[in-house]
Every structure is written in C-alpha cells, then in structure tokens.
Simulated assay, not measured.
Amino acid sequence: MANPRRRRSSHPAIIGAVIAAVATVVAAAIPVVWELTRDRGGSGAAAPVQGTPSAAQPQSTAPATSTGARPAPTLAAPAASPSRPAQPDVLPLVDMAEMDDFEGWEQEPLIVAGKLRDPVLTTSPCWLNDHFTVTFVVSRQFRLLEAAVGIADESSAGALRFTVLADSKEVFTTSVGLGRTRPVKVDISDATQVSLRVSTTNLNQCHRDSIGVWIGPQLRR
C-alpha cells in the first residue's frame, strides 16, 4: 500500500529571513510617514526651498554697492538765491532824491565857454540877492562828487561863486567868470546829503541876468 503524500512545511530558515526583511521595510517607512504627518499638521504650505525667495517676502530692487550695503539717498542741492544786480559805479546826481522842491533851478542845456553843455543844473541867484541851493540825499553810498562849473555865455560880466556842502558844511568853493570853467572833485564819503550852491559876488549882480551852471554833476563810488 502506497504512503499518503505529505504537505511540505516551509523551512525555518526561510521564514526567518522573510520576517527580517519585512521588519526592515517597516522600520524605514516609519520616519517618512512621520515627516509627512508633521508637515500636514502645520500651515499646510510646503516649506520654501533654501535659496529661493518666498512670495511672502518681497525682494528689494535697490541696487547694492560692491560691499553689499545700499547707497545712501542723494539730497537735492538747495536752489541758489537770485543774485542782486550790480550797482553802477557812476550815477548822475539828479537821479538822487531831492530835499526841496527844486525851485529856481533848471536842467536846460546852455552854452558855457563857447560849448553847449548838457546835462546841466543852472540857476540865477540874482533873484534872491544872495544864493540858490539844491540838496540831494546820497546816504553815504558814494566816495566822490565830480562836475565842472561856469557861467552861461548869455550872462552879464562878473563872477559867481560855486559851493559844495556835505551835510550843510562847506567842503568846496570856487569863483568863475565868463568864458571859463573849473573842475570840481570833492570827497563826500561821510555825507548823507550833498548840496550845490550858486552865490553872487556883489550886490550889483542882482540887477543883471547872471546864470551859474553846474556841468554834468555825478557821483562816483
């Protein structure tokens, strides 16, 4: 009678190897599953890769210097104030403010010593039997008063006296007759007011038409 067929059992060594392999795979998978579970338990967003800028952190577009520091902002230079116009070195005396009403004085051109003179300041003191004076404000802005003096050729014979006053004090005087002129150059550095005067030299002139002429009076700085 034949022996019944028996089922072969697995060899113990093979079963142990299989169990060891399964345990190794399970042990390797546990850390991976743990990492995935922790990340999902956070904000749910994947952590940015190192070196890649995050969308939540905008990057500055300011250029950096060679040392890595940002350049300091450049301040605009203040606007230059407009410069004042230069003052003229020479100015006609008649351009200055007057202290009186200019009564008795004229500025019409006249012939003196054979030449037509203009600009001029003229007066005839005979109407006052003494002198005529005109005063201008100079405010210590000028160094010199320059002019020439004479008598109009249409006048009668005889000399007239010409005087410069600085703040009512005589600083220059001269007498001139017909056919002649004399220069005038006076220091007025300390004067706030300058006066020109024409005076008679004798009472007989008051009965004649004698015209004294200041030729081109000007101020120099």
Score class of each variant (00 low, 15 high):
Met1Val: 14
Ala2Met: 07
Ser9Trp: 00
Ser9Cys: 11
Ser9Tyr: 03
Ser10Asn: 09
His11Asp: 15
His11Trp: 13
Pro12Glu: 10
Ala13Thr: 13
Ile14Arg: 07
Ile14Met: 02
Ala17Thr: 12
Val18Lys: 00
Ala23Lys: 06
Thr24Arg: 05
Thr24Asn: 06
Ala27Phe: 03
Ala29Phe: 07
Ala29Trp: 02
Pro31Gln: 10
Val32Ile: 15
Val33Arg: 01
Arg38Gln: 11
Asp39Arg: 10
Gly42Val: 02
Gly42Thr: 04
Gly42Ala: 09
Gly44His: 02
Ala46Gln: 08
Pro48Tyr: 00
Pro48His: 08
Pro48Cys: 02
Thr52Val: 00
Thr52Arg: 01
Gln57Glu: 08
Pro58Asp: 01
Pro58Asn: 07
Gln59Lys: 11
Gln59Glu: 08
Gln59Gly: 08
Ser60Phe: 11
Thr61Asp: 10
Ala62Tyr: 02
Pro63Tyr: 06
Ala64Lys: 00
Thr65Gly: 04
Ser66Asp: 07
Pro71Ser: 04
Pro73Ile: 00
Leu75Asn: 07
Ala76Gln: 06
Ala76Leu: 13
Ser83Asp: 13
Pro85Leu: 13
Pro85Asp: 13
Leu91Ile: 15
Val94Arg: 07
Asp95Glu: 13
Asp95Arg: 15
Asp95Val: 09
Glu98Gln: 13
Asp101Phe: 14
Phe102Ile: 09
Glu103His: 01
Glu103Phe: 05
Gly104Trp: 03
Glu106Asp: 02
Gln107Tyr: 09
Leu110Trp: 11
Ile111His: 11
Val112Asn: 05
Gly114Asp: 15
Lys115Met: 12
Arg117Pro: 15
Asp118Leu: 03
Asp118Lys: 03
Leu121Pro: 03
Leu121Cys: 10
Ser124Cys: 04
Leu128Asn: 05
Asp130Phe: 11
Phe132Asp: 03
Thr133Asp: 10
Thr133Trp: 08
Thr133Phe: 04
Thr133Leu: 04
Val134Pro: 02
Thr135Leu: 01
Phe136Ala: 05
Val137Glu: 02
Val137Tyr: 05
Val138Arg: 07
Ser139Leu: 08
Ser139Asp: 02
Gln141Ala: 03
Phe142Lys: 05
Arg143Cys: 14
Leu144Trp: 13
Glu146Pro: 03
Val149Gln: 04
Ile151Ala: 08
Ala152Lys: 12
Asp153Pro: 00
Leu160Glu: 12
Arg161Ile: 06
Arg161Asn: 07
Phe162Lys: 01
Phe162Ser: 03
Phe162Thr: 07
Val164Gln: 13
Ala166Cys: 13
Ala166Ser: 14
Ala166Arg: 07
Ser168Thr: 12
Glu170Phe: 05
Glu170Cys: 07
Val171His: 11
Val171Tyr: 13
Thr174Asp: 15
Gly177Asp: 14
Gly177Leu: 10
Leu178Cys: 13
Leu178Phe: 06
Gly179Phe: 10
Arg180Gln: 12
Arg180Lys: 14
Arg182Val: 04
Pro183Cys: 01
Pro183Met: 00
Val184Arg: 00
Val184Lys: 07
Lys185Gly: 09
Ile188Lys: 11
Ser189Phe: 10
Ser189Ala: 07
Ser189Leu: 09
Ser189Arg: 10
Ala191Ser: 13
Val194His: 14
Ser195Cys: 05
Leu203Glu: 12
Leu203Arg: 15
Asn204Pro: 06
Arg208Asp: 01
Ser210Phe: 00
Ile211Cys: 02
Gly212Asn: 00
Val213Cys: 09
Trp214Leu: 01
Gln218Met: 07
Arg221Pro: 02
